[in-house]
Structure formats: structure tokens, C-alpha cells
Amino acid sequence: MPPLLRLILRRVFWVLPVALGVVTITFFAARVFAGDPTELYAPPDATDALRALIRIRLGLADPLWVQYIHYISALLRGDLGMSFSTNRPVLIDLWDRLPATLELGFTGLTIGILLGVPLGVIAAVNRERWPDFLVRGVTLGGMALPQFWIGLVLIWVFFVTLNWLPGPVGRLPVGIDPPSRLTGFMLIDTLAAGRPDLWFMALKQLALPAATLGLTTLAPIARVTRASMVEALQSDYIRTATAMGHTNRTVWFRHGLRNALLPVVTLIGGVAGHIFGGAVLLESIFGWPGLGQYALQAIDSSDFAALQGFVIYASLLYVLAFLVVDILYMLIDPRIRQ
């Protein structure tokens, strides 16, 4: 069996137990720790009979383990249940909100990688000199400051004070209708609809949340790149490449960086899982209608099926992220390919 296929099968094999385990924990934890949703849906003066009826309608009347079995058997048929609060199938809700999270995540992660990796390299090749100290100082700040705080500062500077960018009201300004969904990615669908004006609006809406995400992912990426590069640059093959007359650029980027990438890819995989799993606080701050916001609302309203649906999505995403990391490993390092 080709190693790549074996790898994919092994990862896919893990999807089921991981998702099942996570969803089981969520199922019971939510019911124990979150409030009883009956109270949220019953009028304050509801009679006990009405409450009982609501409980039956919400599927909460049965003993916990019976609810669990119902849920799991529906799940095995691909049915994630209904959301209490939107009254729609959870699967449809997730599908609607997925592109918002992906678009923000891709943009933020791309910014983080495109800035973080070169900064790490610059720091490593200037080790213990001022560019190194600068990068280390700035990224230490980026690691220490909470993401929501960076988001709020950016909003305050670029929206409140300078008013260069629009406020945190989601993917388009209030009152603007989105183009019909093709990919769900606003930057693509606006162009497909032939609306460059909308495209520009969407870009401006995306700028601050994506910058926040980019800044917070840049910091760990730059630091890991630096550490890994410093180590790679001390290897024998770097000395050989220099001795053979290669330029610094070739030595650093072709010979050094390629070898330094493995830990960076691992980190980016974890960060990606985190981001695409829904940057919960970030989406809330920017009114971003993504999965993170959905999850937060689900917790708020004891919307069990919605919460469990989100958790399943997030765990699948982590497994996928690790699969991508594994595949990249094989592409980067020939020793792993065999």
C-alpha cells in the first residue's frame, strides 16, 4: 500500500473514535453544567403541564441515557438534530456559517504565515543582533496579549479614532444584501456576481478581524521558525552549502528553511485547527457570523444539539489538520516518505 494512502486510512480510522469521544463528553457535560433550556423557552408563568410539554418537544423528557442513545443513533444516520434556537437542522446551520469562519481563518492564517516565517528567518540569521531582539520582543508581546484585546485595540485605532475602516458589524455593512451564495466566500461571490463595490466593502470588513488573527498567529509562527532555523543553520550541510560557494540567500532559504520547516508545519497545523474550529471570542467581537459565534450562542441558550454539532465539526477539523500536517511532512522530508 502506498504510504500516503496508509496514512490517510489511519487518520480516517481515528476520526470516528475521536468524534464519538468528544461528542459524548460534550453531551453529558452540557446537560450537567449548562442551564435547563426549558426555562429559556417557557413563559415565566408557565404551568407545570406546559413545562412538561416543552420538555417533551425539546426531547428532554426521557432519561439522560435514552436521550444519548437517540442522539447517537440519529448521528450515525448523519442527522445532527435540530437547533432549539434557530429551529433548523444543525447541519444546515453549520453549513451556512462555515464559509464565514473559513474565509476569516484563511486570510488570517495566510497573513500570519507570510509575515511570521520570514520574520523568524530574519531573526535566526541575525541571531543575537538587533533584528533578532526586535522580532523576539514583538512576538513575545504578541504571545502575551490576549487576542480579544488586540482586536479591541485595532477597532479602537482604525475604526473609532481614525475611522479608516468600518466597524465590527460582520461581513458586510449593515443593510447591504450579500450576493447569492456560490462558494460562500464573500471575496469570491461578490466578484462572481460582478459587484466590485461589494467586494471592496467585504474586504474592508474583513481587514480588522483578519489582521487580529494574523497578528496573533504570526507571533508563535515567527518564534518557532526562528528556533528551528537557528538549529538548522548549525548543521553540517549548511557549512557544506557555504563552503561550495552558495550565496547567503540560497544557504538560508533553500538549504536552511526547508529543513527547519517541520516544527513550523506542526505548529501551523495546530493553529489552523484552532482557527478553523471557530475563533470564538474573535468572531463575537467583530460580529462575524461564523461557527465560533454559533458555538457561543449555543452555549448561551443551552442549545445542546447545536453545541454538539459544533464540537463534532471542530474535532473533524483537528483530525483533518493533522492529516494535512502529516502529508506535508512527507512532502518536505524524504526520510519520512519511506
Partner: peptide, 27 residues
């Protein structure tokens, strides 16, 4: 540095002890 690069490899070259480590593992 630039003048030194015209010497390295082209005029003076070197063979190291542990050749497997001296070559880049990913190429």
C-alpha cells in the same frame, strides 16, 4: 563576503569527515 564566495568551491573546495551529514537530507 562577495569576493570570498568567488573563492569557495570554485578555487578552494573541501571534503568533510561525515559525508552523509554534510549533505542536505531533503535534496
Amino acid at each position: 563576503a562577495a569576493a570570498m564566495r568567488t573563492i569557495r568551491g570554485a578555487r578552494i573546495s573541501i571534503v568533510f569527515q561525515d559525508a552523509r551529514a554534510a549533505m542536505n537530507p531533503v535534496f
